[in-house]
């Protein structure tokens, strides 16, 4: 199985030969890869060198936290990669943005109303959690549609609060 993995616009072609051998950008390496007690911490032995990192599945791909640095990575297999290069990059940029609660908390302020035009970086909502007031900002310009919460509401993690189109 061959994968194309991209980090910081740098492409790595990783072919998995068997449980213990991979080819990275044309170079064969012997690997031993284990999850530490079934968790998101992984140990990699590669040609004798030992590494440990967190690997998380994020909203837009993978995130690898290695030696104090975060590497956002996208991993696609050969077939998908061919499709993407034929039809252009896949996830559409437009569409509706759903603002989701990053943690459970209390809505203390909603400075925008349905129908408001907002710019990138504008504060959409203030969520109090862990005794801190956290400003949730718009990732892009657009118009507020579907306000689903009001001041005083308690919300759960990942609950959709409002949408921007």
């Amino acid at each position: 199985m061959k994968y194309i993995t991209t980090i910081d616009e740098q492409e790595f072609v990783v072919e998995i030969l068997d449980e213990e051998h991979i080819i990275v950008n044309g170079e064969t390496c012997s690997v031993n890869f284990e999850s530490i007690s079934g968790e998101s911490v992984f140990s990699l032995l590669i040609d004798g060198k030992s590494y440990e990192a967190y690997v998380y599945e994020g909203d837009f791909g993978w995130e690898v936290l290695l030696q104090g640095s975060l590497y956002p990575a996208t991993v696609v297999d050969e077939r998908e990669h061919r499709l993407r290069s034929t039809f252009g990059s896949s996830p559409a940029q437009g569409g509706e943005f759903y603002l989701k609660a990053p943690m459970p908390g209390l809505v203390v302020d909603v400075p925008v109303d349905e129908g408001d035009e907002v710019n990138e970086g504008d504060v959409l909502l203030i969520l109090e959690s862990m005794k801190m007031q956290n400003e949730l900002k718009s990732p892009r310009a657009g118009k507020i549609v579907r306000m689903r919460v009001k001041v005083g509401d308690n919300v759960e993690r990942r609950q959709t609060l409002l949408s921007v189109v």
Partner: peptide, 10 residues
């Protein structure tokens, strides 16, 4: 990044 790439891929 190459180590991170390998780990994400695996």
């Amino acid at each position: 990044p190459h180590i991170a790439a390998i780990m994400a891929t695996l």
